[in-house]
Design a protein around this nucleic acid. Structure first.
Length: 544
RNA sequence: GGCGCUUUCGUCUAGCGGCUAGGACACAUGCCUCUCACGCAUGGAACACGGGUUCGAUUCCCGUAGGCGCUACCA
C-alpha cells in the first residue's frame, strides 16, 4: 500500500476568496506531493449551487500562482482524470449512487426539508439514523410499488446512506494516530440532494478521490468527525483496499480571544486573511490581501508553513546550498540552538513531515508574519523595493528617479516605523513593508516647513547659540566643492574637531525637522549643497 | 446537550521516562552611536489540575477543567 504513487489534492469550494487556512492546507499538500515525487490535483467542489460565487475559481488559481504553489493537474491545469469540476461530473455520481441503491447500502427518502424541521422541533436531538428511519417516509418503510409510484410522479427525494449501528470505526490518522468513532452516532447522511440534483460533499469526495487515485487526504480538522462516514463509504463501494490515508490538520485560530480565525479578525486587527485582495461581486465589499498589503509570497508561505508544523532542529548549510542533516532527536536531551525558521520552498519540501505537525490549533500571529516579511524584504536588493516605493511616492505627488529611490531605500530600510496595533496602542516595528517607508522618508523629498518647539529632540538640541553655530556650519559647507559624503566628511570633521562642536543634531533639525533620519553626511549629499543650505537658512530664520 | 480532537513561556513551538525544560516572535535592559534605528549582549516569562504506572514523570494511562471542531438536501 505504501508503494502507491503519491497523489494528493486540494479541493476548494468556489464560494468566495480563499481563506488563509485553506492556503496552508494547500501548501502542506504541495510540500507532501513534491517530497514524494507525487502529484497535486486541483479540484473544484461546486456541488452547492446556491453558494457559487462567480470569480472565486479564478481568484484561487491566481492566488496559488502568486504564492508559488504549483498544481500538476486539475481545473485549468489539465490531466487525465478530468473533468476536475464536480458540477461537470453529474453523470458519474449518478452511476455510483445507483450502485449503492442497488446493493442496499443507500435508500431513497421523501421527507421534505419542512418535515425534517418539524421532526427536529418535535424530538429533541433528532437524528436521521437506524433508530428513527423507521418512522420516516423512505424506501425502507414504504412498499416498493409506492416508492416507484412516487418517483414516477416526480416527487422529490434524496438518497441517504444507510449506516449500520454498533460498529467501531478505526481511522489511522497520520497526525493524530488512531481515532475510533462508533457508528451509533453517525446519521444517515444525504448523499444526493433533490434540490439541485447534485451529490453532497461526502459522496462526490469519495467517488472523485477514488477515481482520481488519490493516495492521501490532507485536510482541515473540521473533517475529522465525518471521516468515519467516509471510511464506511469506501467500504460500501468495495474500495477499502485503495482507500487513501488521512491526515487532519489543526485549525488556525484568532490572534486574540477564542474561536477560529475569521474575516472579521483581520478587519479588526488590521491584517489580511486572504492571499489576494477580493472584491465581493454581490456586496461590493473589498477585503484586503497579502499581496496588496506588500507581503512577499515567500514570506507568507514560510510563515504559514510554520503555523502547525515544525521541522525541529536543523540548519541549512550556506556553503553548498544543500540542507544540513536534520539532527537525530537523541540530541534533544541537550538542546541545540540551530532550529532555523527561515526556509526556502525547496528546504520545506525536503524537511516536511506530517508526523511533525502539531495536533492543536494555532493562533494566528500576524506580528510574526510581518517579521518574516521584514526578513525577506531585507534579502531583496534595494532596486527590488523601488517599483512599490515609487508608486507610494507618486500617490503623494512626488516624482523622483529610480536611482534616488534606491538610495533612500538603502539608507532607511533598517529603520523602525510606528504603527497602531489592534488594541489601538502605538507600537514600533521593523520596516516590514515597502509602504512603511513613506512616513520615514518624507523629508528626503519635502523640506520641513514647521518645527515643533515642544518636541523633546528640538528642545534639547536647539539652544541660544545654535543659530549662530548653524550659520558657521553653512559657511563651511559653502566652501566644499565635492559635496559627496567623503568630500563633506574631510572638511566638516576637521572643522568640528578644531572648534570642539557637535553640530549634528541641530543640523538634523534643519534638514529633517525632527530627530530621525540617516547619517547627516549621507542626507546632505542626497539633498545636494543648494537644498541643504536652503533648509538650514530656513530653520535659522524660523527657529532663531 | 451528544460525539470527537486538543492542552509546554503572552504567541508559534522543541522535547518522544532522568535536561539548569531549548529556540523564534513580542517585551525589558545594556553596549554601539550625530537622531530614530539595525546589530550585538543580557533578562523576565511555560510543562492546566487531580489521580495512577514507574526507582523516576513535561513525557505513558485515567479522570476533571479549559480550548477547538462536528452535530444541514454547506463544504
Amino acid at each position: 500500500m505504501s508503494e502507491r504513487k503519491v497523489r494528493v489534492r486540494f479541493a476548494p469550494s468556489p464560494t468566495g476568496p480563499l481563506h488563509i487556512g485553506g492556503v496552508r492546507t494547500a501548501l502542506y499538500n504541495y510540500l507532501f506531493a513534491r517530497q514524494h515525487g507525487g502529484e497535486l490535483i486541483f479540484r473544484i467542489e461546486d456541488t452547492d449551487s446556491t453558494r457559487f460565487v462567480p470569480g472565486a475559481e479564478e481568484y484561487i488559481i491566481e492566488a496559488f500562482d502568486w504564492l508559488g504553489i504549483k498544481f500538476d493537474e486539475g481545473v485549468s491545469f489539465g490531466g487525465n482524470y478530468g473533468p476536475y469540476r464536480q458540477s461537470e461530473r453529474r453523470d458519474i455520481y449518478k452511476k455510483y449512487v445507483q450502485q449503492l441503491l442497488d446493493n442496499g447500502k443507500a435508500y431513497i427518502a421523501f421527507d421534505t426539508p419542512e418535515e425534517l424541521d418539524a421532526k427536529r422541533k418535535e424530538i429533541e436531538n433528532f437524528q436521521y439514523d437506524a433508530r428513527t428511519r423507521g418512522m420516516m417516509r423512505n424506501s425502507l418503510t414504504m412498499s416498493k410499488e409506492e416508492v416507484e409510484r412516487l418517483v414516477a410522479e416526480g416527487h422529490q427525494y434524496v438518497v441517504r446512506f444507510r449506516v449500520d449501528p454498533g460498529e467501531d470505526i478505526h481511522i489511522d490518522d497520520m497526525i493524530r494516530g488512531e481515532v475510533v468513532i462508533n457508528s451509533d452516532i453517525l446519521d444517515d447522511k444525504v448523499l444526493f440532494k433533490s434540490a439541485d440534483q447534485l451529490p453532497t460533499y461526502h459522496l462526490a469526495n469519495i467517488v472523485d478521490d477514488h477515481l482520481m487515485e488519490v493516495s492521501h487526504v490532507i485536510r482541515g480538522e473540521e473533517w475529522l468527525p465525518s471521516a468515519p462516514l467516509h471510511v464506511l463509504l469506501y467500504r460500501a463501494f468495495g474500495w477499502q483496499d485503495t482507500m487513501p490515508r488521512f491526515a487532519h490538520l489543526p485549525l488556525l485560530l484568532k490572534p486574540v480571544g477564542n474561536g477560529k480565525l475569521s474575516k472579521r479578525d483581520g478587519d479588526k486587527l488590521g491584517f489580511p486573511v486572504f492571499p489576494l485582495e477580493w472584491h465581493d461581486p454581490k456586496t461590493g465589499e473589498v477585503s484586503s490581501g497579502y499581496r496588496e498589503r506588500g507581503y512577499l509570497p515567500q514570506a507568507v508561505v514560510n510563515f504559514l508553513a510554520l503555523l502547525g508544523w515544525n521541522p525541529g532542529n536543523w540548519r541549512s548549510s550556506e556553503s553548498n546550498g544543500d540542507l544540513g542533516q536534520t539532527l537525530p532527536s537523541r540530541d534533544a536531551g541537550r538542546p541545540t540552538a540551530n532550529d532555523q525558521e527561515m526556509m526556502t520552498m525547496d528546504e520545506m519540501i525536503r524537511l516536511f513531515d506530517l508526523s511533525k505537525c502539531s495536533k492543536n490549533g494555532a493562533k494566528f500571529d500576524y506580528v510574526k508574519a510581518a517579521w518574516f516579511n521584514h526578513q525577506y524584504l531585507l534579502q531583496q536588493p534595494d532596486e527590488a523595493w523601488v517599483p512599490q516605493f515609487d508608486k507610494l511616492l507618486r500617490e503623494q505627488g512626488i516624482a523622483s528617479t529610480v536611482e534616488k529611490e534606491a538610495e533612500v531605500v538603502r539608507m532607511m530600510k533598517l529603520k523602525v516605523v510606528e504603527y497602531t496595533d489592534g488594541e489601538g496602542n502605538k507600537k514600533k516595528r521593523n520596516v516590514s513593508f515597502v509602504s512603511d517607508l513613506w512616513p520615514l522618508t518624507k523629508f528626503f523629498f519635502v523640506a520641513p516647513t514647521t518645527f515643533d518647539r515642544e518636541d523633546k529632540f528640538i528642545r534639547k538640541n536647539w539652544g541660544e547659540a545654535t543659530a549662530d553655530e548653524m550659520s558657521r556650519l553653512m559657511e563651511v559647507l559653502r566652501g566644499i566643492s565635492d559635496f559627496s559624503v567623503e568630500g563633506q566628511k574631510a572638511v566638516v570633521d576637521a572643522w568640528t574637531e578644531e572648534n570642539a562642536v557637535r553640530p549634528w543634531n541641530a543640523w538634523r533639525i534643519c534638514l529633517v525637522g525632527a530627530g530621525q533620519g540617516p547619517d547627516m553626511y549621507e542626507l546632505a549629499a542626497f539633498l545636494g549643497k543648494e537644498e541643504t543650505l536652503r533648509r538650514m537658512q530656513y530653520a535659522i530664520d524660523t527657529l532663531g
